[in-house]
């Protein structure tokens, strides 16, 4: 597997506070990486640096061998990295379909037209197909402000994926989503990501989700990476268990309960 994203000694400090220190990460093609860590560990800072929202204080970011350190978010988007947000970033007064149409129009290689109608049948068909890829086509005509959280999250990801990126960064895709909807949402997203052939990296607090979808886990603690490896190995790392997961990994709970009953 060839690597697509590589960060070398990435550092970000806000005054005396170091939010991320010496982050060295390599993401390979088609890999699904879970990022875990307690609040303030540097997960979102890492995503923000890779996508150009924050300028790193030190270190470099290479995407397909090209140095993209210090790129603006729109330059990063154009190179093939996209992201979703902890709080879905949408256009609330427009409908779901219009949101998708705007995403397609903006991400297309062509300049934004001033006379060609955005709502042409071809564009609508493309946008509807994209929406149905995330199973939200039935909400097409609903204004985004009226949508439930889970649907907003899916739309947010669908819009990010409209560029057909090589790497998708998901910042807490299931935060704010009802527990019973979490797996359904992740199933839909992961299926769409696999179809597109993109690699993905997702920040998540729910260890059940991490262990179910990630093939590899990177654990952040206090701005540093304390573990990076195959999911099971990383989750069982003593430091990860102590600082992030908690000494009793709740994945093992059902077994424990059974043992207790016996």
């Amino acid at each position: 597997m060839s690597s697509i994203l590589e960060t070398k000694g990435l550092t970000k400090s806000f005054g005396a506070i170091t939010a991320a220190a010496n982050i060295n990460v390599t993401i390979n093609e088609k890999e699904i990486v879970g990022v875990i860590g307690s609040n303030g560990a540097g997960k979102t800072t890492f995503i923000n640096m890779v996508t150009g929202y924050l300028k790193p204080t030190g270190g470099s970011i290479l995407f397909r061998g090209r140095d993209i350190t210090g790129f603006s978010p729109r330059q990063v988007t154009r190179t093939g990295i996209c992201r979703s947000f902890q709080v879905a970033q949408l256009f609330p007064e427009l409908t779901t379909l219009e949101n998708m149409l705007v995403a397609h129009a903006m991400l297309s290689k062509k300049r934004l037209g001033m006379q060609a109608p955005m709502k042409s049948q071809t564009n609508i068909d493309t946008a509807m197909a994209a929406l149905s890829g995330y199973e939200i086509e039935s909400y097409a005509d609903a204004p985004v402000a009226t949508l439930p959280q889970g649907i907003r999250k899916l739309l947010d990801i669908a819009m990010a994926m409209a560029s057909g990126p090589d790497l998708l960064l998901l910042d807490e895709p299931t935060s704010g989503v009802a527990i019973e909807e979490k797996f359904g949402l992740m199933d839909t997203v992961m299926e769409a990501v696999k179809r597109s052939g993109a690699a993905s990296l997702f920040v998540e607090h729910d260890m059940e989700i991490v262990s179910r979808y990630a093939t590899r886990v990177i654990a952040f603690y206090d701005g540093h990476i304390i573990a990076d490896g195959p999911t099971e190995e990383a989750l069982n790392n003593p430091e990860v268990r102590e600082y992030i997961v908690g000494s009793e990994l709740h994945l093992q709970k059902p077994e424990d309960d059974q043992n207790a009953e016996n």
């Binding site: 996508t51 603006s72 978010p73 729109r74 988007t77 154009r78 996209c82 992201r83 947000f85 970033q89 949408l90 256009f91 609330p92 007064e93 427009l94 219009e98 149409l101 705007v102 995403a103 129009a105 903006m106 991400l107 934004l112 037209g113 001033m114 006379q115 060609a116 109608p117 955005m118 709502k119 819009m159 990010a160 409209a162 560029s163």
Partner: peptide, 25 residues
């Protein structure tokens, strides 16, 4: 113009500039 991509870009800017930025515009 109002119906075009550029026309809707105005509404997009009004609604959410961060998203516009991340859509590469």
């Amino acid at each position: 113009y109002y119906q075009s991509g550029m026309g809707f870009a105005g509404e997009a800017v009004r609604e959410n500039e961060i998203r516009v930025e991340y859509l590469g515009v």
